[in-house]
Amino acid sequence: MMRSESRALQLNDQGQLKHFLTLDGLDKSILTEILDRADSFLSMGEQSVKKVPLLRGKTVVNLFFENSTRTRTTFELAAKRLSADVINLNIETSATSKGESLLDTLQNLEAMQSDMFIVRHADSGAPHFIAEHCTPNVAIINAGDGRHAHPTQAMLDMLTIRRHKEKFEGLKVAIVGDILHSRVARSQIHALNTLGVDEVRLIGPKTLVPEHFKEMGAEVFHELEPGLEDVDVIIMLRLQKERMQGALLPSESEFYRLYGLTEASLAWAKPDAIVMHPGPINRGVEISSEVADGEHSVILNQVTNGIAVRMAVLSMAMSGQLQEKEQQASSTGETV
């Protein structure tokens, strides 16, 4: 009665990625492979010739139902460095006809014989839906869906952590702020637990950090000081202005006073703790300028790492699709 699981949906018969929808259910070896590949692309970025031909002749469509210049640009750069042809589509959706427009759009794009869709959508599960409904052999990459997942962002954060801390074992990681609405945090929790950190802590008021997150393998703290005590990595999340209107918080200033990362609160963490933020930063709302620009901050490294991680994911998913296509061809060949 239960439909296929994400594992089955995003992996081919050899257990290789063919879509990249969520980190939930992916094992440590795949996450490590993504990081290793990204590392090799990073060293390549330092060379004068930046392109590799892994996606030569392939058409990659950036299918953004929600606006995001930064994420779209890094995906575009990643695809181009892999020698793909890239089409960018920003599609505004009306609240009433999401379903139809999504399916119609897909059918139109399939006719263009695309090889890969990079999808951002406001509805949780939209990339799953697309992976289930589009023609075979098109890879779907999740570039953020609703509150559900943002797996490439989480993996670039993992790369940043690994490059600074070398290994995940023994690390204590705190994620601070609006966990409830954050697809990044959900993907980070999966990744950190799979890669074997010691502890994942979530810090924020009950309106933004419901107790249910404990079931994902995280500790929940409602106060900053005990939450930050002895941590190696601090990930600050962006606080959206809408949260005040939604009665989730009284004011930005009260949030900053209780949960903002300042030099004083940073002192509660380990002396060599690193500070991360998926951006864009609200200075003076979730983080002070001194910390954002200070020696503990690795925020700018995150952006560089983002291109390498996306190159890794795109190339792995494409080879997973090719592997599956060859297998289909050989099995139909046998039956003829």
């Binding site: 999401k98 379903g99 139809e100 999504l102 399916l103 959508h121 509805d123 949780s124 599960g125 939209a126 799953h128 839906f129 409904h133 869906d145 609703g146």
Partner: peptide, 11 residues
Amino acid sequence: KMAKIAPFSAT
């Protein structure tokens, strides 16, 4: 059929 062919919350 179309009523269910959409992302979960939009069905």
